[in-house]
Design a protein around this nucleic acid. Structure first.
Ligand code: SF4
Ligand code: SF4
Lengths: 143, 143
DNA sequence: TTATAATCGGATTATTTTATCCGATAAAAA
DNA sequence: TTTTTATCGGATAAAATAATCCGATTATAA
């Protein structure tokens, strides 16, 4: 069950958090990511490929190959993953499903939802993934 | 594109808002609801059937039949529709897709998301649909 | 050089969600 | 009583999302 983002996007965020938490110079195989995060191997593999195309991560083929962040974790935020996979449309979209959000024709929950949308965006945009390392490791340890 | 709730749930909320906003007395046909809200006729029809099974609305077959609220709009909230269609699980669920939310193993956005979840719930639980009548009519006029 | 271990990438399958079709049924009006 | 206009409800279709398969490619290490 998904709350806001697609499974692809959820898994993508988890993987980025893991790559950031695992620091080190060497790369992480999709197999390891799959096992640690309990995500189907072939599925996370495809997601990692698409994040690579988006330039968020890099990869090497061959023995001792794998995936790694494309830049320093202090320069990556969770919102970057959302932008790359699901896109940012939901942060302009209507929680009641009305086709568009116009201030002159606000829906019944206009003000409240507008604020919540912004807060959700800020939540993913305010901290870089390096800051989330400890919590990530703690969370992963319980999977 | 949906933000949090399924299309069924979004359409269901819209339909309940419309039934509440439309004057009482006579019933509203699924055809009218479909046209006003621009929802596929057969689809909203099915959704209305399920809301009827849930006891939120009533219906009459035959000529001059249709759907109406099962109780006074001052006793119905949007959260009732969510509970009937999508269920309330999302309000306990993880925005990053981790399998469970435990305070001892909080995810990297634990506090923020916990607060947002609660606010989203409150948004749908705080006002009864009769209070939303004016805004509903205004919104619908722009569809 | 050869065996091994990893990603790549295109095709395919499975599942869930969204939407539609249509015959049966019921009630009101003609 | 007959016709008209609704919902009911079960089956099905279409679309989107989630997951998998597998051969090809590439890099490392023995
Ligand atoms: S503010 Fe209201 S109209 Fe605008 S997108 Fe949100 S719920 Fe819809
Ligand atoms: S608080 Fe954190 S761990 Fe708990 S459900 Fe929300 S995102 Fe997941």
């Amino acid at each position: 069950m998904t709350v806001i983002f697609s499974k692809k996007c959820e898994y993508g965020m988890q993987a980025i958090l893991y790559l950031a938490a695992r620091e080190k110079g060497n790369l992480v195989s999709s197999d390891e990511i799959s096992k640690v995060l309990k995500i189907p191997r072939e599925f996370i593999s495809k997601i990692l490929q698409s994040l690579r195309e988006s330039g968020l991560i890099i990869s090497n083929k061959g023995k001792s190959g794998g995936f790694g962040l494309a830049k320093d974790p202090s320069r990556i935020k969770l919102i970057d993953v959302v932008a790359a996979i699901d896109g940012l449309d939901i942060f302009d979209s209507c929680v009641l499903g009305f086709p568009e959000c116009s201030p002159t024709h606000p829906c019944p929950v206009h003000e409240t939802w507008g604020t919540l949308r912004t807060q959700a965006y800020d939540m993913l945009n305010s901290e870089t993934v390096d800051k989330l390392k400890d919590k990530t490791l703690n969370k992963i340890s319980s999977l």
